[in-house]
């Protein structure tokens, strides 16, 4: 049997690399600055006789394709459709980190939210009620400290449950303002007609309403069964960029 695929998403500098190293036994260098991981890594691990292949996506603040990194992460989740996506959150700045988790939940329901740096949060006097977050999000939420290796087993149990399909989470969707919701309602059926159930219709509707050009070209490439060409990393200096 092919191993289950697990994608690791999260803000930059949330300890994603540390978690990846802990799980796969690989040794990526970790550092305390945003954007440290420049090459996405892959590794394997076994949990209770089940094999998993883990992909460390680039650390991003969002998945709205503002940059090449965000496009890579988005395309992986939406087109490769990993069996499970772990969203790593920094317990010390949950507000911003939840922003990304909510975006991922619009793309896939097969998510485990992993709140990392719990030890740091405790030191700073931040108390996080993971059960409450789990209720609010509708997907499993596990608190871990990747560097002290606590909570890892629970995390892997949840990942295994979702991968095997024995637990199918029902994420609580973000409700937008009436105007946007009305527009989504109009567009969703059209999307189902055209694309079927291959992609999450509500999310595609939001992206189309946002006129996300990059997603549209990725979708187009995918629909014509032209394998999405490898993300070009060469530098085109002639184009005046404004990032």
């Amino acid at each position: 049997m092919r191993p289950y695929t697990v994608a690791l998403a999260g803000n930059p500098n949330t300890g994603k690399s540390t978690l990846f190293n802990t799980l796969t036994g690989l040794r990526q260098h970790t550092g305390n600055w945003a954007g440290k991981t420049v090459v996405s890594a892959e590794g394997e691990f076994i949990h209770e006789d089940t094999a998993f292949r883990m992909i460390d996506l680039p650390g991003t603040y969002s998945l709205y394709s503002n940059s090449a990194d965000e496009e890579v992460a988005r395309d992986y989740i939406i087109f490769e459709q990993p069996d499970v996506t772990i969203v790593v959150l920094d317990a010390t700045s949950l507000e911003r980190n939840l922003n990304l988790a909510l975006q991922v939940l619009e793309m896939t329901s097969r998510v485990v939210v992993c709140i990392n740096l719990m030890d740091e949060a405790k030191k700073l006097g931040i108390r996080v009620d993971t059960d409450q977050i789990e209720r609010q999000l509708g997907v499993p939420v596990v608190a871990v400290s990747a560097r002290n290796k606590t909570g890892i087993d629970t995390l892997l149990d949840k990942v295994a449950e979702i991968a095997s399909g024995s637990h199918v989470p029902k994420p609580v969707p973000v409700i937008y303002n009436d105007d946007i919701e009305k527009k989504i309602a109009q567009l969703e059926p059209l999307i189902r007609q055209t694309l079927g159930d291959r992609f999450p219709a509500r999310w595609v509707a939001l992206r189309l309403l946002d006129e996300d050009e990059s997603l549209i070209s990725s979708l187009r490439a995918k629909l014509h069964e032209q394998p999405a060409t490898e993300q070009k990393e060469e530098i085109r200096y002639g184009r005046t960029a404004c990032h």
């Binding site: 603040y61 969002s62 940059s67 507000e95 911003r96 404004c242 990032h243």
Partner: peptide
């Protein structure tokens, strides 16, 4: 405007 606006929004 532009990409930076969106990045700023993402950052809070």
């Amino acid at each position: 405007q532009g990409v930076l606006r969106r990045r700023l929004l993402d950052l809070g």
